[in-house]
């Protein structure tokens, strides 16, 4: 290495260290490990019912939205982004366990990758209602994009899995490490809230004046998508969050039409069961949702 190369190498290291804190580097590392695990051939999705939480309702939801659970989860994890993640280090009782919580939903998304079980990688993937009260501070860190110099600002298109959708978002961001970008966290959360509001407007039959969601914590993982269950989920989230009687009425009318459709499905009982399970946890936030659901089921 000549003198100039050596200088550049040192310079890059300095830039990288300035651009990323140790905890951010750790989080990126965890996210990359989960992505790698999801790409391996020996992944098993943990479908056993946990003792202390109803962890299977999301899988039933996924199946009723016509996805294969395994494909859905692996696709999500292959595209997992670090910006909304926080490590749950308290669950890491063994070095081969990675556990992260995605904070940007009404009920946090819990992802645990366990490589201790013989030669299989066991993945847990469910909503975590116990930790729902935790914050939603985003780091703004994203993986993907096209090659860029460290420290350079550029426009990038990044794939972001969120709920039942994968958004491809064009963002102006800074490259903080090879393949890692940072954007303003508020831009990301605004984008996602806006997407939810657009979907909500469609569900409310393009109602012109209505109170909008203003925080990601008001919207569930299951409320981003295209199926009738996603529509019902966002309308229930909306009816649970709104205090304005007009808005609740809009949501109730929209839900009535969705349930009329649902009742004609041959497997209506399955949908009914999935919805009741989805909102059955005895946590305060669910009470309003259960009342709304009780009007139709």
């Amino acid at each position: 290495m000549n003198k100039i190369e050596c200088f550049n190498a040192v310079d890059d290291t300095i830039i990288e260290e300035e651009l990323l804190s140790e905890s951010e580097k750790h989080l990126i590392n965890l996210c990359c490990k989960i992505r790698r695990a999801a790409n391996s051939n020996n992944v098993v999705i943990d479908k056993t019912e946990h003792r202390d939480s109803d962890n299977l309702h999301l899988f039933r939801f996924i199946e009723l939205c016509n996805y294969s659970v395994d494909e859905f989860v692996l696709r999500y994890l292959r595209n997992l982004q670090p910006f909304s993640l926080r490590e749950d280090a308290s669950q890491k009782y063994d070095k081969k366990i990675i556990c992260v919580i995605s904070l940007g939903f009404k009920y946090c998304l819990y992802v645990k990758v366990d490589t201790t079980q013989f030669c299989e990688i066991v993945v847990s993937f469910h909503e975590d209602q116990f930790y729902s009260h935790r914050g939603n501070e985003f780091s703004g860190l994203l993986l993907g994009g096209v090659k860029s110099e460290v420290g350079e600002f550029s426009s990038q298109t990044i794939a972001i899995p969120w709920g039942f959708k994968i958004f491809h978002i064009g963002l102006f961001c800074q490259c903080v490490k090879e393949g890692v970008f940072r954007c303003e966290p508020k831009i990301l959360s605004n984008y996602l809230v806006n997407e939810a509001n657009n979907f909500l407007a469609d569900c409310l039959n393009n109602q012109q004046v209505f109170t909008k969601f203003n925080n990601l914590k008001q919207i569930s993982f299951t409320s981003y998508g295209e199926s009738i269950l996603n529509e019902i989920s966002i309308l229930i989230d909306y009816a649970s969050y709104c205090r304005n009687p007009n808005d609740v009425t809009f949501a109730t009318i929209a839900l009535t039409s969705r349930f009329e459709i649902l009742q004609n499905f041959p497997d209506y009982e399955e949908y009914k069961k999935a919805l009741l399970e989805r909102y059955s946890k005895k946590i305060p936030d669910n009470e309003r949702a259960l009342i709304v659901l009780g009007l139709f089921i």
């Binding site: 056993t48 946990h50 202390d52 280090a89 308290s90 669950q91 890491k92 009782y93 063994d94 079980q117």
Partner: peptide
């Protein structure tokens, strides 16, 4: 770390926590 705590619990042979060779959920919690 949580790992240190798990080692400590195991070292002390705390009994009556539900755990099998493949089911570590209760121990982890």
């Amino acid at each position: 770390t949580a790992e240190d705590m798990a080692d400590f619990l195991r070292e002390k042979h705390v009994t009556n926590i539900y755990e099998t060779s493949t089911d570590h959920e209760c121990f982890a919690n």
